[in-house]
Amino acid sequence: MRAVVTVTGKDNKGIIAKVSGFLAEKKVNIEDISQTILQDFFAMIMLVDLSEATEGIAELAKECVELGKEIGMSIYIQHEDIFNAMHSI
């Protein structure tokens, strides 16, 4: 199963390292990654594969929120189907 990880907030040092470190620990494989910075606003979107993940997506989602609080960012992980459903016909 694939999911989308979104990290948004004020730009800061080490965001990618912290998030990718967390994902590696949970055996989540990053397939694609893109990042933009608009003025001070940081947005990173990752497409990840959860087939070998150590936890279910709902559990990961909770931990992402916690991690987000720690580093002062909004972090979500969502099943990719929600975006396919909403944004393609």
Binding site: V4, T6, T8, S34, T36, A43, I45, S74, Y76, Q78, E80, I82, F83, N84, M86, H87, S88
Partner: peptide, 12 residues
């Protein structure tokens, strides 16, 4: 397939 813009729109 969705774009980055689409993803951010849903989050918003």
């Amino acid at each position: 397939m969705f774009t980055n813009f689409d993803v951010l729109e849903t989050i918003q």
